[in-house]
Design a protein around this nucleic acid. Structure first.
Lengths: 221, 221
DNA sequence: ACATAGAGTGCTGTATACAGTAATAACCGT
DNA sequence: ACGGTTATTACTGTATACAGCACTCTATGT
């Protein structure tokens, strides 16, 4: 290495560059920063223990992801989603998943399909344990994986971006057991269609599943 | 006002905040910064006449838009698109436009449909003048407007984001007259379907149009 | 001659300091 | 007392300065 600065102390502070971005994102998703909150930069800097420069850069990135809104010479605001916004985003998700469903049935390997089935089994376990968080996480993973198997990374990226936006909403949504059971039943159907590589059937179920998801979510708003 | 600093000189420099972002975006789209170029921040600062801080913020935003790639502790690189990337992006556009086609035919007002027809007429004029740039711009406008009429702003935003990425590619693409004529013919079909509010027909044509666009573009890569 | 260690250079990532602007509170005139 | 105007404050936007890492080019040992 170069530039022995004389001091022996090696690396006393883990800089680890992109640390603020995920932290801030989590704060928004988990609701630590409520929707509609005007972000005070200096204040947040103290909380995060970083300077304004990296924080502002993270804010710009999150604005690109649609989690934050930038108001000219007035700063950043945690984006607030209307019922309509959520419906629109779920519509996009639906488009992606229907497309991916067909493509995945056509192109995915047997191993990949098996991996999704395993995720599903794990999710069922979480359901039986009535562990909402674990269930939710695996649910997301299954949908993400299915879209990934569609073979179009652009779609996968956009899909996960919108999923991230919805995370905050769905995190809070306390669905009753009946609805929860319905969602699980749809997932069972999906797995059957995927196992038999019936693309049209899978697309149909996933479309229906997303429509139902909208209904399930929309009365929690 | 407050804080009279003593000096009388009022405002000698137009700060105008978000000036760098659109300028940098144009530089990428117009190919001033070639794909694959590693961006040297200090160098670009001199060219743009701003400091590194706002430039870096603009870079973060453009990374969110997918025009720039961020490499950890190595800086920013103007994103290079493979043939596959372009195909994938056009696939997304196709999804959006097919969806919007149906929705637009169902929900758009007569005035809105008429406005699209006017854009089309203007585009035909540009075609007759063999004015590629004018044609291209109106072409984009028509597609954007159709998607907007679909009534889902999320889709419209994502659509225009991807269109922006493709701009750089399509800018350069020098299609021969035969292919150009083909594209125009498809647009004529689209206008007929839209005028009669035949959603399925419009969706079919637009899907075909995007497939053809992929073919037309892909041999210019 | 080639591989390897070391110094040097250049660029990114971060922090701090300054300038300008919008919102708010105080003050004055009517 | 109330509307308008002025001063204060607080926060955003920008610039500059510093620290650390990564790469390259050179020099030396085997």
């Amino acid at each position: 290495m170069a530039k022995q600065t004389g001091s022996i102390e090696p690396i006393h502070r883990r800089t680890l560059h992109g640390e603020v971005l995920p932290r801030l994102r989590d704060m928004i998703i988990e609701g630590v920063l409520e929707a509609g909150t005007r972000i005070n930069e200096t204040e947040l800097c103290l909380k995060l223990g970083v300077s304004r420069t990296p924080l502002r850069e993270a804010i710009k990135t999150l604005a690109g992801e649609g989690l934050i809104e930038l108001v000219m010479s007035k700063g950043a605001v945690v984006r607030r989603f209307t019922r309509r916004d959520v419906a629109n985003m779920l519509e996009v998700i639906k488009l992606f998943e229907i497309f991916a469903a067909k493509a995945a049935c056509a192109n995915a390997t047997d191993a990949e399909i098996k991996a999704v089935a395993l995720l599903h089994k794990a999710m069922v376990q979480e359901y039986k344990k009535r562990n909402r968080l674990g269930y939710y996480k695996l649910n997301q993973d299954i949908h993400s994986e299915l879209v990934r198997l569609g073979g179009n990374p652009e779609i996968a990226d956009l899909h996960s971006m919108i999923q991230a936006r919805l995370k905050r909403i769905r995190y809070l949504g306390n669905q009753e057991s009946t609805k929860w059971a319905g969602a699980l039943a749809e997932h069972e159907e999906m797995m059957k269609a995927l196992a038999t590589r019936n693309g049209n059937a899978l697309a149909e179920v996933m479309g229906r599943h997303m429509d139902q998801t909208l209904l399930r979510v929309s009365d929690t708003l």
